[in-house]
Design a protein around this nucleic acid. Structure first.
Lengths: 136, 136
DNA sequence: GTAGACCTTCCAGCATACTGGAGGGTCAAG
DNA sequence: CTTGACCCTCCAGTATGCTGGAAGGTCTAC
């Protein structure tokens, strides 16, 4: 009774990242080296999908791949943590919460800008000209 | 009655970025070219502090410097926007809100991990050894 | 008038996180 | 038994966002 097993391409489509990125993640210790077929193909278990999702989420939360790898390593041991490990997880949590505050501020500012703009009349701009405000 | 004017070093300490970064931001059109003294020194007005804060916040929210520059350019015109400009601002807002969701998920996962760890007994680890779970 | 802390430009290099491509093996379908 | 879609490794290159250093000018303070 093993779960579903998939090759790298299928994991890639399931997670929305490329196969190259998955190999890169393995090299960076974000994903454990998977089983291989006799011919050397990587075979992943369904569990890997959640792990990739965690990586992507943590990345969007502003953590570096290195930090994410460390958090996952902590999670993987399931062992009683020493103080350094505990503090590390708490540090990452603090990072995320700080970013959360920044994000809320930025959202507020963008909403303000949007509302300010929508209070003005639309100006004209044909779709084949690049608008003044969006010039490089 | 002009506001306070400061040189680049003072703006740097006021905003917590380096003078190099401020020059880089200018080059990337995140900051408008400031006035110069007769000898060529950049002179910033107090207003620049908020602008740098916006850039940092928007960066933490996952926007690229290019996107931030575009948003600021829109904000700067104060003009009625064409549809492209409006959509651009709305797109950035959508980016931020998506990241907000990711961030909340990641925070929840980190809190879970922290709680799970704190339920276990502390293990020992002297401060001059690197803990098993934090190995490179 | 010179030391020191500023400031200037320019150009090179770095860390992070991929991305592309060469060169080649695997495998099911026709 | 070959075509095509996969997979493999390895190595180089790219985009973003800085960062360092050279080479030199400025400005206050003694």
């Amino acid at each position: 009774m093993e779960g579903i097993q998939v090759l790298i391409g299928e994991l890639a489509t399931a997670t929305g990242v490329t196969a190259k990125t998955l190999r890169f993640y393995e090299q960076q210790h974000l994903l454990p080296p998977p089983e291989r077929t006799a011919s050397g193909y990587r075979v992943y278990r369904a569990e890997a999908i959640g792990r990739v999702a965690f990586v992507k989420g943590a990345q969007a939360a502003g953590l570096t791949l290195r930090q994410i790898a460390e958090v996952l390593a902590v999670r993987d041991t399931g062992q009683a943590p020493c103080e350094h490990v505990s503090r590390h997880v708490n540090d990452r949590l603090a990072d995320v919460e700080e970013r959360l505050r920044d994000l809320l501020t930025t959202r507020r500012q963008l909403v303000e800008l949007r509302d300010r703009l929508s209070a003005l009349n639309r100006s004209d701009c044909t779709s084949d000209t690049i608008c003044r405000a969006l010039q490089p």
